[in-house]
Design a protein around this nucleic acid. Structure first.
Length: 792
DNA sequence: ATTCGCAAAGTTTTT
DNA sequence: CTTTGCGAAT
């Protein structure tokens, strides 16, 4: 019997309200948890409490929306009740797992592919052509959105009927059934299907439903306010015979309505489950009184909500600042200089600060300003890594190996790298496939027999098929092995390595990173069927999951990404009409309320200090345009806030405050030049635009640095792969590394560890390489990093 | 068949 | 201003 936490460990650290929720065992439970009220703690402690009853771990299911939340929960649960096989994960992952087991029931094969938005849009574009609506004025994107909307409301392709007189609807009505048919033919699902298929599965197979209900007797759902209809039905149908559904959420933090989330789910929970126990967690342990006051006044303007107070024992703290800047540049520069000041004065570290914005595009000027101050920063962005061409190319190979019917994957790679199989040939293959109801791969196998295809092309296609079959032979090996074969046999690696273009060298580096991820995955999942599991992970993961709070950097992200996080000091920028609230939200009051909640979420991330700001001028489509302050501003308690309206010379006032920070402080000359936005200094610096994964300019610099050695290092790595990976054999135990230790990396040279995080295989070191070569993160268990005796 | 260049268009949030 | 798409030229 594994060790479990004692009752004291479980209940001891809790407040009475929290304890009430944790001790509730049977019957439905609704936990209305305000921001910073210790919600995650309640969930994990409740699971631990259930385990101590004892409820078998296999009967407990904890569902979250993001991997980040799931990881966090798992980690904290492991501390209370180590190694318990409680199923903790995201909805999508849970559904995917369930579908794999019962795929035939919904017409799929077990090895189905999961299409991300890009893939699904490709299918839609194609079906639009087939349906003859291609040249209507609708974009695949619009159609995709409508289909997604329908799916979120559980309207299937047979039931969908266009609203009379709606041209979009008419187009969708034509495309939707075809789209669904094509997905099924390719044995593929899109993100929405994962949920929808599962909901249908449970609805139409009563005995399966009963089994699931019985299996998952205690279900917990985090962020319940973000569930959509499908998720609601899934959870409900598994809580009939065992109605022990516990949900936590905060209606005021529902910000995913655009994704089909239905606020009614939480607002009507008490109605759906009579005799429900309701616990309100209104005590906030995060923010100062002043911050909560602002949050409270703002959210009070929403009509559709459950009345709720926010209480804190904390001090009032400094007043929340509201600043009207002349322009976006003043805004960015002033914020950067304030941060630099506090860092220089040693009262705070960079990682104490976060800057939130409504849209990713706004990060630009902030980046520039932080860089000018020499402040380290990281940008948390949605997808990024797995969205890159090269990664998707390589993954498409794996996808096709796993699921030969995956036409989208085949299209993507049949001519990558170049194999002289052009658009025309593909078109003819496709026509043939359509005519005989074949998959593209099967059509390709017959290419020699298709009259329309010239001999030369047929030979190329045959070579591709042969290549595919060769790769199939290793499909049961470890993911790393499969990847190695793919990169080698397809010539993909060689293709990138021989290229002179800088972009390709960066791509190669990314591919290497994918290999590292595969290696890590193999170590964790030595079981067979690794490929499929790996693919699933890569589809359902996003980069924000990798965000690392340990690293000492200023964090920039959208307010959506900020949910669930907290920072001592928060800046929220661009409170302007059209941005926050966003222009696309203006038409309906529901959407406007969601924007208000979004700001509420942003505000309540702050622990000690908060600044809200807007700029009087901001560039829009290239031109600097006057702005209108956000309509939310008058809703704030201005008399309790600090109001600033700096004149346009902010930049001059703050000049030279970068002293003592990592990089050179900008001198006056720098400042004057950087004022025109196009100075030589700027241009010679490395652009930080697509460094989301690495986080900042310094790391992009390291990417640039390895360019010179790019080709040769790639060859070395390929050789390593074949010779049984000498890197792995030289491994040093992750525990020997410590903060500030000097280490050496075979490729990047020497550097110093500036941050450590994670444990075991996830233990990660951030290394600052000497000579301004930049920083890079390493998973210690898998990196070739070696300690060096400190000089002196 | 690929690459380059120019023109137009479009800017939300993400599993 | 940036990115994407398309068309023309090699």
């Amino acid at each position: 019997m594994p060790p479990t936490a004692s009752t004291d460990d479980i209940l001891g650290p809790l407040t009475p309200a929290q304890r009430e929720a944790v001790q509730h065992v049977d019957g439905p439970l609704l936990i209305l948890a305000g921001p910073g009220s210790g919600k995650t703690r309640v969930i994990t402690h409740r699971v631990a409490h259930l385990l101590s009853r004892p409820v078998a771990a296999r009967h407990i299911l904890a569902l979250t929306f993001t991997n980040k939340a799931a990881d966090e929960m798992r980690l904290r649960l492991d501390r209370l009740a180590p190694h318990q096989p409680v199923w903790v994960g995201t909805f999508h992952r849970f559904c995917s797992r369930m579908l794999r087991m019962h795929a035939p029931l919904v017409g799929l094969s077990e090895n189905f592919s999961i299409y991300d938005t890009e893939n699904s849009r490709k299918v839609i574009a194609q079906t639009m052509e087939e349906a003859g609506v291609a040249d209507s004025h609708f974009t695949p994107d619009q159609i995709a959105r409508s289909i997604s909307w329908a799916k979120n409301h559980l309207i299937d392709h047979n039931t969908y009927t266009a609203a009379p007189g709606s041209p979009v609807g008419a187009a969708v009505a034509r495309v939707f059934p075809l789209y669904q048919k094509r997905l099924l033919a390719s044995s593929a699902v899109d993100f929405d299907d994962l949920l929808v298929h599962t909901a249908v599965l449970l609805r139409e197979n009563p005995e399966l439903r009963a089994r699931m209900d019985e299996r998952y007797r205690y279900i917990m759902v985090d962020e319940y306010q973000d569930t959509n209809l499908a998720q609601y039905l899934i959870v409900r149908s598994m809580s009939v015979d065992w109605p022990n559904l516990a949900v936590t959420g905060d209606p005021d933090q529902s910000i995913y309505g655009w994704r089909g989330a239905n606020l009614k789910n939480i607002l009507d929970f008490e109605h759906d489950f009579p005799k429900v126990k309701v616990v309100r967690l209104e005590q906030n342990y995060r923010s100062t009184g002043n911050i909560l006051l602002v949050a409270d006044s703002l959210i009070a303007h929403n009509k559709r909500r459950k009345q709720k107070r926010l209480l804190t024992d904390k001090a009032e703290g400094p007043p929340v600042r509201l600043v009207a800047y002349p322009s976006h540049r003043d805004e960015a520069e002033h914020i950067a200089s304030q941060i630099a000041d506090e860092v220089t004065a040693k009262c705070r570290r960079p990682r104490d600060f976060a800057i939130f914005y409504r849209v990713n595009a706004l990060s630009r000027s902030l980046e520039d300003a932080l860089r000018a101050q020499g402040l380290p920063y990281q940008i948390v962005r949605g997808v990024e890594f797995y969205q890159r061409q090269e990664i998707k190319d390589v993954l498409a190979y794996l996808q096709l190996l796993n699921n030969p019917r995956d036409d989208v994957a085949l299209r993507r790679i049949i001519n990558v790298p170049r194999r002289n199989i052009g658009k025309t040939t593909l078109q003819r293959l496709n026509a043939h496939a359509r005519r005989h109801e074949l998959t593209l791969l099967d059509a390709a196998r017959e290419s020699g027999l298709i009259e329309t295809i010239p001999k030369r092309a047929a030979v190329s296609v045959a070579a591709f098929v042969a290549l595919y079959d060769r790769l199939r032979l290793v499909v049961h090996e470890s993911v790393e092995t499969i990847l190695g074969h793919v990169l080698h046999e397809t010539g993909y690696r060689k293709w990138l390595a021989q290229s002179d273009s800088e972009a390709d060298n960066d791509r190669l580096a990314n591919v290497e990173e994918l290999i590292a991820a595969a290696r890590e995955f193999d170590q964790k999942n030595p079981a067979p069927g690794a490929l499929e599991a790996f693919l699933e992970q890569t589809c359902l993961v996003n980069d924000a999951d990798d965000w690392d709070s340990e690293i000492d950097r200023v964090t920039m992200m959208t307010m959506h990404a900020a949910k669930g996080l907290e920072f001592p000091v928060v800046y929220i920028v661009a409170l302007e009409e059209g941005i926050l609230p966003h222009s696309r939200s203006r038409d309906s009051s529901d959407k406007l309320e969601e924007e208000r909640r979004l700001l509420f979420v942003g505000i309540t991330r702050a622990e000690e200090q908060l600044q809200l700001s807007f700029a009087k001028y901001r560039p829009y489509r290239g031109a600097l345009c006057p702005t209108i302050p956000s309509e939310f501003l008058p809703e704030l308690p201005r008399d309790r806030m600090e109001w600033h309206e700096p004149s346009s010379s902010v930049a001059v006032e703050v000049r030279g405050t970068g002293e003592g920070v990592d990089e050179l402080p900008p001198d006056a000359a720098d400042y004057i030049e950087s004022d025109d936005g196009d100075s030589p200094q700027r241009r010679e610096g490395v652009r930080t635009r697509d460094v989301g994964r690495y986080g900042n300019a310094a790391q992009s610099a390291s990417a640039a640095g390895r360019r010179t050695a790019g080709a040769s290092s790639a060859v070395v790595t390929a050789a390593q792969l074949q010779s049984g990976d000498p890197v792995a054999t030289k491994k040093v135990s992750p525990e020997v590394f410590h903060h500030a230790m000097v280490v050496v990396h075979p490729e990047y040279g020497a550097g110093r560890i500036v941050a450590l995080s994670g444990e075991g295989e996830r233990r990660t070191a951030t290394v600052e390489f000497f000579g301004s070569r930049g920083q890079k993160k390493f998973r210690l268990a898998f990196s070739p990093l070696r300690p060096v005796r400190s000089p002196g």
